[in-house]
Simulated assay, not measured.
Amino acid sequence: MTWNIPNILTALRLLAAPGIAVMFLYFTRPYADWLALLLFVVAAATDWFDGYLARAWKQETRMGAMLDPIADKAMVVIALMVIVGYSSMSPWLVLPATVILFREVFVSGLREFLGDTAGTLKVTKLAKWKTTAQMVAIAVLFAQGVFEHYLGMAAWGMDQALLDDIFAGRVEDLQGLRWKMAGMEWSGLIGLTLLWLAAALTLLTGADYFRKALPLLREGR
């Protein structure tokens, strides 16, 4: 194994994946949301840097080619598990997350079954866009958790009548409830939209991989 800088970045990204879940075990919210968001964004950024550096420095290795997709999948799967687990289990969130998780398991199993011949299933540009959409969607959804909990902290102890007056503009918004609510709603809407886009791209790329693998799955080969 060659431990050059691109491979070290990839390995760190792989180790960061379970760290996202660990944040919610040792920190209260919204600090856990903040730390998970920062860890996820930094780790996702290495996905671009390690590939760029490996190509620029001509340090592409078999270990890097093996670890890179595993690290990406681990980050996406664990982050989605955390987001769904701490959500209200809305079908608008659960359905696209299920599609993404199913595709990742299906394609990973397909590649494992094909063994050495899996190298013929090259990563397409559409698959890279799919990964990008997933990463951005997850980061925005973590940001929604931050807004949600700061909103809850600011509104603590207020009755519904006072909240209604603040949101209606009849009472001065000293705690910034309106902008916290707007941040929560907009990040939720944008995050869900991007997650559905990622799910659609996930289905397209999964179907494309399966179509390309069909000749390799025929009996008697």
Rank of each mutant, 00 (worst) to 15 (best):
N7T: 04
I8K: 02
R13L: 03
R13C: 00
L14P: 04
L14T: 03
L14C: 01
I20D: 06
I20H: 04
A21M: 14
F24N: 11
L25H: 12
Y26P: 00
T28I: 00
P30I: 06
Y31M: 13
L35S: 11
L35V: 07
L37H: 04
L38H: 00
L38P: 00
L39S: 04
L39E: 04
F40G: 02
V42Y: 05
A43L: 01
A43S: 10
A45L: 13
A45Q: 09
T46V: 03
T46W: 09
T46G: 07
D47I: 05
W48L: 13
W48M: 10
W48H: 14
G51M: 08
Y52R: 15
L53F: 11
A56Y: 14
K58T: 13
Q59H: 06
R62F: 05
R62E: 08
G64F: 04
A65E: 05
M66Y: 12
L67V: 03
P69T: 03
P69N: 03
A71Y: 00
D72L: 05
K73A: 00
A74P: 05
M75R: 07
V76F: 03
V76G: 00
A79C: 10
A79G: 10
M81R: 05
V82C: 12
S87W: 11
M89Y: 15
S90F: 10
S90I: 07
P91D: 04
W92P: 02
W92T: 07
L93Q: 11
L93M: 14
L93C: 12
L95P: 00
P96I: 08
I100K: 10
L101A: 05
V105P: 01
F106Y: 12
F106M: 14
G109D: 03
G109N: 09
G109R: 08
R111F: 05
G115C: 11
D116S: 14
D116N: 13
A118R: 14
A118S: 15
T120P: 00
T120G: 09
K125E: 14
K125M: 13
K125L: 15
A127N: 07
K128L: 01
K128Q: 05
W129P: 01
W129V: 02
T131P: 05
Q134K: 02
Q134N: 09
Q134E: 12
V136M: 06
A139K: 02
A139T: 01
V140I: 15
V140S: 01
L141N: 01
F142S: 01
V146Q: 05
V146S: 07
F147C: 06
E148F: 12
E148L: 08
G152Y: 09
G152Q: 13
A154G: 07
M158L: 15
Q160P: 04
A161P: 15
A161V: 15
L162C: 08
L163D: 04
D164S: 14
R170I: 01
E172V: 12
L174A: 06
W179E: 06
W179P: 03
A182F: 10
S187D: 02
L189K: 11
L189W: 09
I190K: 04
L192N: 12
L195D: 09
A198Y: 10
A199W: 13
L201A: 01
T202L: 04
T202R: 07
L203E: 08
L203S: 09
Y209W: 07
F210T: 15
R211H: 10
L214F: 08
L214K: 14
L214C: 07
P215H: 05
L216I: 10
L216V: 06
E219D: 13
E219R: 15
E219V: 10
E219Y: 13
G220D: 03
R221D: 08
